[in-house]
Amino acid sequence: MDIFGDIPWYIYFAAMILKVLVAFVFVLLTVAYATYAERKLIGFMQVRIGPNRTGPIGLLQPIADGIKLFFKEEIIPAQASKFAFVLAPLVALVPAFISFAVIPFGDSIQIAGYKFPLQIAAYADKAGTVYDLNIGVLYILAMASLGVYGIVLAGWSSNSKYSLLGGLRASAQMISYELAAGLAIVCVFMVSQSLSLQAIVADQSGLFGWYIFRNPFLFVAGIIFFICSLAEINRTPFDLPEAETELVSGFCTEYSSMKYAMFFMAEYANMVTVCAVMTTLFLGGWHGPLPSVLNFIAKVYVLMFVCMWIRATYPRYRYDQLMKLGWKVFLPITLFLIMGNAIWMTLFK
């Protein structure tokens, strides 16, 4: 097969497996410590101390939480649809993780004379040209649109009214905001003229090469994309599906033990993914002053800090305000941005 180029197949496979492992472990660790960081940060912002009992300054808290959830009793409601009930946490978790397959998390590296791009779904040929998935951005959109199934299935199969209402709210919200997020990305396509994430990152070298600084329309598009992504992954201030004052805890009311932990992990994994996508599409990917991988990680962590900051700051939206914001504010603005971007690009070529 020609994809191996002059790389022996065992080195090719070893590099692939290594890349998958590194990316996966990185996301898992980030997810675990994001829960700790969020509790600690929000604690400081509300003049509390936050978790500090398990290990030095509470650093072992995520592990303790994991062990606790793992040993809890597993409860499946008698009236639940068993198949869908068991399937739902998996369906919620998997799309969040596999989106990482197309995100370039660093520049290509040379090992033993062979070139390896730091992106799971990519390879380099003999001449050193990097090929990646031609439709990387569409792949991310596709995976984002699948996340809704986990929540819908969880809401329906639990056979509880709180779960069902939470599930319905979540899916309506995700479908509405997917549209505006997708349209905001269209502005990026117009500038990059490519759907491949390698090409998009390569086009953003230098500080003012970042797409968010290219023109005013892209700046607004970037901010709208971030807000819509927050709404799509049900983060505060758009966390109505789990609004505990009205819906107990929404679609995961009936879940316990590891299944509940999987929903929790899916939420944080989605947050990591959204921040990584935002970094790649608008904030220059791995470009920056540090070594490439560190740049990427730093940008992702800064965005995650912003997510937590928003959670500590803003109250929750009301459901009708949320829908109005999605359909009557963001959707027209993104359509206008596409027009504006096109005009800008023709005027200032």
Binding site: I135, A142, L146, I175
Partner: peptide, 15 residues
Amino acid sequence: APFMAAIQVIVYAGA
């Protein structure tokens, strides 16, 4: 035909 595949997932499976 990766474009077709992505559209298949986005439109049929996702919507």
